[in-house]
Each structure stands twice: as structure tokens, then as C-alpha cells.
Design a protein around this nucleic acid. Structure first.
Lengths: 216, 216
DNA sequence: ACCTGAACACCGTTCAAGT
DNA sequence: ACCTGAACACCGTTCAAGT
């Protein structure tokens, strides 16, 4: 559909998102996106340094409708809200989902949501250095979960086969959870939140409720 | 160096690993690997269905020298040993590191180490379904940590900039941890292990030491 | 000065032609 | 029957030629 006349970063990322949603991650090439816009591939380079920069912008665009959590909610509820929100937004855009948490949050939406994560962790009572460490652990987990959710959508019922290799589990005849499922995602998130709670307790003296941690 | 005469999966993966170690992940193309072996690119397809299958085999090969943990050690020590071991092996082979934990462990070494993870989690006292959930959470975290460690080696001092955007942290003037560092990796791992310990306590009655969990 | 598109240096994989 | 390499359908990006 060769139509668009005035090119802008927003117009380009919107087109890229559409291509990705329709035809998958590897369809998001400079050439395909340009074709979608009816322009020369080289025109895109006037707005983005290279393909990676364009994908970063698309990833940030995909997070536009994720709202920040209620500031009055407890820190762990806020963390769950923002991470679940990002996951939901990512799954609405499978073309870019795997890219979303795999790079530093440079865009406006990434910064906004990243700040929500950091402040929630600070409110949990973690010392500043641990706030950053914990946020990166959460983002790492999120990134991998999203990438796996996309891949699981494509193929791979083979995690099951891998798990059955262990006698103890095979004997128990477990009903195995789906790799990229919400259930699976929430479980890992619960582990991390429980870990953060335990960590905060040892560092700031035993209370892990909402509010500012005590100084010193 | 056109030399190799008899092609085999092992010879191919060894050559691929060498190319990746020397020239990075995106140098591991069918054509470059074939050139390394002095053979036609199509010859590789006689041993591997496609490039993905070849990379899976390379990833498994990279894990060959990771030893299983001492079966007598406590479950959390065993988990740390095997995950640290995989991380160390991955960083020795940066060309394939990002690929290592991002797919189900189908190869011999992946199965071997995956089984060690699963049995350790079973020994922690988790019910079978949660053993699988927890293992996938650990693998997801590991996969993202490895991918980020490779990328951090390439570029990206921009996580720091992203973190400084939060007033509380900026004011504190924190010395930020490096993204792919061992310190950062261990912190996230500690969170997950603490979470597993807490989870096991609620599910099986409060004890989380080494040994078989009670049935029923 | 700005923009365009031909061209470069690659890809993974198919498939027909050779042995 | 087996293997090879030319060819197909793509890439991201450079750069010289056009306006």
C-alpha cells in the first residue's frame, strides 16, 4: 500500500509494529517496512541510525498503553502490575515481544515503567545498589519469559520431553505447565518477589511493608 | 583452512564453535562454517536439518566440560554450582552464549545438567509441578543473563543512564553494578533461591534441607 | 543540500545438474 | 544414489549519481 507521504519516526514505528504483528519478527526488515510505507528503504535511515535503533523505538511504542501502577499500592503489588502489564502488551505484539526487555529501557515508555520498577524496589526497603541489581534480575527474567512465550507459540513441545527424562518426575506423572504460559510466568515472578522480600528483611531490619526504608 | 576430509556432526560443531569464539555470534553462518571446514555449505545440511539445529548442537557442545554437582551437597549449593558452571562455560564461548539456555535442553549435556537442576529442586521439597516451573524460571533467568552479558561486552553503558533517571537513586549517587557481571548474576540467583526456599517451606511444611521431600 | 536507488557484500535454503 | 554448486529469494547498509 504505497500511500504515506510525510515520513516520521512515529509513522515508521507504527508501520513496523503492524508488519511484525501480521507476519512475525523476522518480517520486520528495513525493506519490508519500507514496502509497507511505500517508500525507499533508505528513507528509514534518515530517521533511525540503523535497524536496531528502529526496533528499539518499536519496542518502546509497544509499551505505550501500559499504565503505571497505583502509587498507593504495596510495592509487591505494584511490581506485579507493571510486569504483568508489560507482558500483556508484549503478547499483543508478538513481532516485537522478544525484543522488548532485552535492551536497556531508553525510550520514553521504557524509562517510565523502569522508574516504576525502581521506586517499587526502593520502597521494598532495598539499599540503592540492590535496587538496581534486583531490577535487572526482574528485567532479565521478563525478557527471557517473553522470548520463550513467542517461541512456544511457534513450536517446541520439547521442554516436556526434556523434563520427562528425570526419573522422579516421570514416575510422578506430572501435568507439565506450558512454557510461555501466564501460570509459568507468575510462578517465576513469585519466586523473585519472595526473594526480594527476604533480601529486604535481612538488609533493613525485618519489615518489608510499603513506605520508605529507614536511612543509614 | 580447507583441510577436513571426513565430515561429522562433532567436527562441524567444533568448527562452528571456533568461528563463533573468534568472530562473534553473527559470524556463525552456514557459509562461514563451511569455509572454515573447506567444504561446500550444502554439505552441512547432510548432518543438520537447518541452521537452528546446528546451533543447538554447538550450544550443547559448549556445555561439555560443565561437571554435575556433588550429589551430597545441599540442594541450593548444587543449583548454584550447576548454574555458575553453565555461565562460566557460556562466557568461554561468547559466540554461542546467547543461544545456550534459550531453547529446550535437547542435547546430551543439556539433558544431563537439566536433570541436575530438576533433582536439586525436587530435593528442595517442591512438588513435581513446581519443580518444573521453578526450573524454567531459573533457565529463563540464566538465558537472559547470558544474552545480556554478551551484549554488555559489545556495548551498552546505557543501563546506567536509564537507572539515573530515578531521582531517589540519582540522589544517593549509587555505584551501579555492571549489567552482565558475575556480581549481578549472583544477586538474581540469590533472589530466586530465596524464593524457592520460601516456596518449599509453605508447600511441604517448613523444612528445606537436603533430602527427599515427604510424599503425599 | 537533499534524496534516491543501484550496488555491495552478505544471508539460508532449494533444486537441478553432474558424477 | 549421492553429492555439488549454481541459483533463488532474500538481507542491512554504502555510496555515487541524480535532482
Amino acid at each position: 500500500m504505497p500511500r504515506q507521504r510525510t515520513l516520521s519516526p512515529t509513522v515508521i514505528t507504527a508501520a513496523a509494529l503492524q508488519v511484525g504483528d501480521r507476519d512475525g519478527p523476522k518480517a520486520m526488515s528495513m525493506r519490508r517496512i519500507a514496502a509497507e510505507l511505500g517508500c525507499d528503504p533508505m528513507a528509514l535511515y534518515r530517521h533511525f541510525g540503523d535497524r536496531e535503533a528502529l526496533l528499539d523505538a518499536v519496542a518502546d511504542q509497544a509499551l505505550a498503553d501500559v499504565v503505571e501502577p497505583d502509587a498507593d499500592a504495596p510495592w509487591d503489588v505494584r511490581l506485579r502490575e507493571v510486569l504483568d502489564g508489560i507482558r500483556a502488551a508484549a503478547l499483543r505484539h508478538p513481532g516485537i515481544a522478544a525484543h522488548i526487555a532485552s535492551r536497556p529501557p531508553l525510550g520514553a515508555n521504557g524509562q517510565r515503567l523502569g522508574a516504576a520498577v525502581l521506586t517499587a524496589l526502593a520502597d521494598a526497603g532495598l539499599p540503592p545498589a540492590d535496587v538496581v541489581r534486583a531490577s535487572q534480575a526482574l528485567v532479565a527474567y521478563l525478557a527471557a519469559a517473553l522470548a520463550m512465550a513467542v517461541r512456544a507459540g511457534e513450536r517446541d513441545p520439547r521442554w516436556h520431553q526434556a523434563a520427562r527424562a528425570v526419573d522422579a518426575l516421570d514416575a510422578a506423572g506430572v501435568d507439565l505447565p506450558v512454557v510461555g504460559s501466564a501460570d509459568q510466568f507468575e510462578y517465576g515472578l513469585r519466586l523473585l518477589l519472595a526473594g526480594i522480600k527476604a533480601e529486604a528483611a535481612t538488609k533493613s531490619g525485618g519489615h518489608s511493608a510499603n513506605g520508605a526504608g529507614e536511612p543509614g
